[in-house]
Structures are given as C-alpha cells and as structure tokens.
Nucleic acid binder design. Structure first.
Lengths: 228, 228
DNA sequence: AACTAATTCATACGAACGTATGAATTAGGC
DNA sequence: GCCTAATTCATACGTTCGTATGAATTAGTT
C-alpha cells in the first residue's frame, strides 16, 4: 500500500519512474532511451509503467512538466515581486533578466539532471512537446517582453524578441555544460556564476544598435571600454 | 558509370545519402532516424548505404564533418586575415566575433538544413562525435581564445571561456530558430542579422566583470575549452 | 473476512532496428 | 570482348522497440 507521504528513499512507482526518466532522457534524449531501460533502472515492471502513464510520450511530457511548471511560476512570481518592490519605477534590465534565469538555475542545482534535461527540450523540443511548452510559456513570455519593452523603450520590439532568444540560448548552453563544471558542486560559486550570466545577457540586451562600437556610451556598469 | 564531376541534379549515391542524412538527422536526431528511412528517401538501396559508410555512426560523422571542416577552416582564415590587416594592432572584439560566427552563418544560408544540424550537435553531441569534434575544434578554440585574451586583457581567462561559451549558446539558439525566421528568406536581412548577433555577443564579452577585480569571487574553471 | 478497485506482473505481438551476406549488375582498363 | 573491381540489390538474422493483454497480487472499504 502506498503511503500518502512518500519519503525520498521509498518514492512510489510513479516518482521513481519520473526520476529515472529525467536522468536518462536528459542524457540520451527521447529516442535514445527505451521503456525497458526506464522500467529496469526504476525497478518498476514494464507493464506498470504504461499503466501509470499510458504511453512513452505521456511519460516524457510529465517528466518535463513536473519541473517546468514550478520554474515558470517562480519566474512570474519573482517578476511581480520585483515590480511591486520598484514602486512604479521601471525595472533595470539586470533585474528582469535575473527574474528570468534564477528559477531554472536554482532548480537545476536542486535536481542535477534537470539542467540538461530542460535545456535539451527547450532548445529543440520533440514535436509532441511543442503544444504543452507553448501553452505553459506564453503568459511568461508576454510578461517578460512587456517588462523589457518598458526597460528598453528605445529598442524595437523585433530586436527585444531576438535578443531575448539569444539570451535564452546563452542560458541553455550554460545549462548543458553545467554538469561538467566542477565548481558547480561548490555552493559559493553559484551566486557569482548567476550574476555573471545576468551580466552577459543584460549587456547583450542593452547594446545599442544605432551607435558605432567605438562611440558607444559606457554601459551602466562599464567603467572604461577595453578598446584601444 | 559515375561521372567524375557530378551535377547537383544527379548527385551520386554517397552525396544523395549525405544530403538526406543532413536533413533527417537535423530534424529528428541520430536516434530518431533509421537507415531504411535514409536509404528510401535518398533512393539508395539499404545495402549500398552500409557499403559506402560501414555503419550508421560513420555516416553520421561524415554528414557532420563534411560541413564542419570547411566552416572551421574559414573561421581560422578570416581571423588570420583580420589579424594581418590590423597590422599589429589588436583586433576589436566585434571583429573577432564576426570571424567566429560568419562562416557557420553563411554555410547555414547555403545549406538550409545545416543550421539546425550543426546547432544540435554542437549543443549536445552524441558521444561518438565528441572526439572528432574536439580534434577539429581545438586549434580553432585556441586561436580565438588568444585573440580574445589580447582584445580583453583585463578579463580573467576563466571569464573569457565562460562568455565565449555563452556567446556560442546564443549563436546556436539563433541557428535552431533560423528556419522559423521569415526574414531569413530575404537576402537583404542577412547582413543586418549577422551584425545584430555580433553586437549581442560582443556586448556580453565586453561587459564589466566586476567593480573590483580583487573582490570578485573566483569562478570555477572549465575542464575543457567550450566548443565552437 | 469479504468484496472491489488499484496496481503489479509475466508474457506476447507486430514492427522497426542495425548489420551481414552473397548474388546480380555495372564500370573501367586492357 | 574480357576480366576484375566496384557498386547495387534483395533478403535475412537476431534484437529491441512501444504497446496490449489478462492473470496475480495488493490496498482500501465495509
């Protein structure tokens, strides 16, 4: 009989399967793992796997959504809190970017395989995930786009969109390689790393298209350009 | 009998197979396509496919390398030319970045499926590709790192590494979505788009690492140089 | 204890997988 | 035209794939 509250050591069939799926799907992709591998590694009978999820695709979707949902909720919550705390003044780009990337960053720290798993599937989702991702992401994208529009009023909307995408690419690349960074085990480097990424993305977002590189005015935290 | 010079309409068995492999592997990944699909779509007998390549993995590697090699050669050539043209003065970061991303950008325009195919496999290469990629990329990475070190002498090496990786992530994200960008069909938008990406990455690379270098907490060191 | 619903289990199905084989066909040098 | 090598072809092997099935077991309620 399954207890209502399951300890981590004795996770139920469903959770064991999801945990294993996260790890194996992250490493090998959807087509790279079979149901039998998943069932075996999770110590679950093959039939039980399809009983609980109905299909491999459904298992994959739930594996993805279980982490993706709370990450997006946290992003939106952080943004709302920041906006409330700003008291009507417009948010700095750095703050907006931080709201966007802190939740996935921290979720990846808590669930090591998740960094890679999320990155893979946001980068190029399997077709059957597209609808679910889009639905989950749409309000999020709209909120952050609006915040960025207000923070960067002189930037055309197309450009904000493009640069947001490029910024996400930078974050996903980091996530893919996060497992190879020995320092990720050291908690002290987490915040500096997050700040580094915020700085990188925010700098790209704020770069001014209208100006020559040489004449570009210093960015907010940019004392002297290293140009000759 | 196969003519020595093959027209594009009547490409030989090998090239037809490589072209189809590029398209299908790009869209569905290595595990998402079978040899029979490839052979059928390329109008090649299944046995002929293994005859020419020996194995599916070998076919995949050659599909990748056939485009990757010239792209890397072009990158290095552009960088050398730029350095020669600068006459001893150090190159601006924008120029270095342009040398790095123009070749894959233009190769993607010539071979539409290649944008996605390259991006997928640089982002998270199948294990059997790791060695080939690393070997092909190593001199390239070293050359560009050195150029960036000279262009950004105040930036710690770790940070240059990290930001180069983030920049590549931005480029790869663009490549994945390139097929969805309506403007990509219009040649007039190519150069502005390329400039936009150069600007984004260069801005991130040049952003101020910290107010005070002495007080900046140490970043973890990456075990391997970032890919591309 | 008895009954029902939920879950786990072993097993099986047809299809597709990568690869190997050897015969048939074609090409190129003589 | 002949011979050899290169290529194409049909076919088959053993495995693994995702899913379905129905019996066995376990849990929850009365």
């Amino acid at each position: 009989m399954r207890t209502k509250i399951e300890s981590k050591q004795d996770a139920g069939t469903v959770d064991r399967l999801l945990d294993v799926a996260e790890k194996l799907f992250a490493e090998h992709g959807f087509d790279g793992v079979g149901m039998r591998q998943l069932a075996d590694e999770a110590k679950v009978n093959l039939g039980a796997a399809t009983y609980h999820f109905g299909s491999k695709e459904a298992l994959f979707i739930e594996t993805f959504m279980r982490r993706f949902r709370p990450v997006n909720a946290a992003r939106l919550r952080l943004l709302r809190e920041a906006e409330a705390g700003a008291g009507g003044k417009r948010l700095p780009v750095e703050k907006i970017v931080e709201c966007m990337i802190r939740p996935p960053f921290e979720s990846g720290l808590e669930h090591p395989a998740f960094h890679l798993f999320l990155a893979r599937n946001l980068f190029k989702p399997p077709p059957f995930l597209d609808a679910a991702i889009h639905q989950e992401l749409a309000p999020n994208v709209e909120a952050f786009l609006q915040a960025l529009r207000r923070a960067l009023p002189e930037l055309p909307e197309d450009l904000i969109h493009l640069r947001m995408m490029l910024g996400m690419g930078a974050l996903l690349m980091f996530s893919v390689r996060a497992g190879e960074i020995p320092g990720m085990k050291n908690q002290k480097t987490h915040e500096p790393l997050l700040r580094e990424m915020v700085r990188f993305i925010a700098a790209g977002l704020q770069s001014n298209p209208a100006l020559d590189p040489d004449k570009r005015p210093p960015l907010p935290v940019f004392p002297k350009p290293p140009r000759t």
